[in-house]
Simulated scan of single mutants.
Amino acid sequence: MSKTPLTVRGAEKLREELDRLKSQERPRIIRAIAEARAHGDLKENAEYHAAREQQSFIEGRIADIESKLSNAQIIDVTSLPANGKVVFGVTVVLADEEDGTEKTYRIVGEDEADIKQGLISVQSPIARALIGKEEGDVADVQAPGGNRSYEIVEVRYE
C-alpha cells in the first residue's frame, strides 16, 4: 500500500481523536454494555443492542485511524524551502481571473479536506492544477462548474 500524504496538523487531529476514542468513548461504551446486560434478557434489550452497535462503530473508527496513521507520510511544510512553489501542505491565495475575487486554500490530505475551512484535498481539481506552479503563475482549473483561471497571488509555507 502506498503512503498517503498527511499534514502535521492533520496527523495531530487524528491522534487526538484516536486518544479520545480509546480513553473516553471505549470505556463509556463498555460500561453501557455492562449496565444493559444487567437488565436481563439480551434478545429484547434495545439498550444492549444500541450499545453494541456504538461499540462496533467506535472499534471500526479506531481501526480506520490506526490504519491511516500507519500508512501516512507526514509532511511538515514549514521544513520545506519557501521558494514560492505550490506543493502539498502550503496555503495558496488565488485571484479569480474573471472577477478578481480572492480565495485562500490549504492543500491537505484527502482525510483532512474541509472546503468550509479552506482545506482542499490534494486530489481535488484545483489542487491538481496548482501543484508545481509558482507565485504569479495562472492555473487553469477544470472544475465541474466549468473552466476557471486563477492567478497564484501568494504561497505560504505555514
Rank of each mutant, 00 (worst) to 15 (best):
V138L: 11
K13T: 00
F88M: 03
A113C: 10
K68C: 08
G109Q: 03
D140A: 14
H49M: 12
H49P: 01
D76C: 04
R31W: 05
I30P: 09
P5N: 04
G10H: 01
A143D: 12
I115Y: 07
I126H: 09
Q73G: 10
S56V: 03
I115A: 13
P5E: 01
F88T: 06
I33L: 09
E17G: 02
L42G: 08
Q73S: 13
I33D: 09
N147Y: 01
G84V: 07
V155Q: 08
E17P: 00
G136H: 03
V122S: 11
V90I: 00
V153G: 02
Y150N: 06
A32C: 02
P81N: 07
V93T: 14
A139Q: 09
L69M: 12
N71A: 11
R128S: 10
E135Y: 06
R28T: 07
R61S: 08
Q73E: 15
L94R: 01
E158V: 11
Y48W: 04
G146T: 14
G60Y: 05
R61W: 09
S2R: 12
I152N: 05
V141A: 11
G146S: 13
I152A: 07
Y48L: 03
I30F: 08
A36M: 07
P81M: 12
E98S: 13
D137P: 11
N147F: 06
L18M: 00
R128V: 12
Q142F: 10
E66I: 01
S121A: 13
R15A: 02
S149N: 08
I65D: 06
G118N: 10
Q73H: 10
A127C: 08
L21H: 07
A32F: 01
G100Y: 05
V122I: 15
A95N: 03
Q55F: 13
S70D: 12
S121P: 06
E158L: 06
T78S: 14
G40K: 09
I33V: 15
E66G: 04
L130A: 10
K13V: 00
D114E: 14
P5Q: 01
R52D: 03
L94A: 03
T4E: 15
E154M: 00
T78Y: 10
E110N: 13
F88R: 03
Y157N: 04
E25Q: 11
Q55G: 15
A143P: 00
V122N: 10
G109I: 08
R148H: 14
Y48T: 01
Q142W: 02
S121G: 06
P144C: 11
V122C: 05
N147V: 15
L21Y: 05
L18E: 01
E97Q: 14
E16V: 01
E110H: 12
K43D: 15
R26C: 06
A32L: 11
I65Y: 06
G60F: 06
A34E: 15
L80W: 02
Q54R: 14
D111S: 12
I126K: 12
Q117H: 12
L18Q: 00
N147M: 13
V8F: 00
P144G: 14
E17M: 06
A51W: 03
R9A: 13
T101W: 07
E110I: 09
D114L: 13
T7A: 03
G60K: 11
E17S: 04
Q123S: 10
Q24T: 04
N71Q: 15
L42A: 13
V141L: 10
K85E: 15
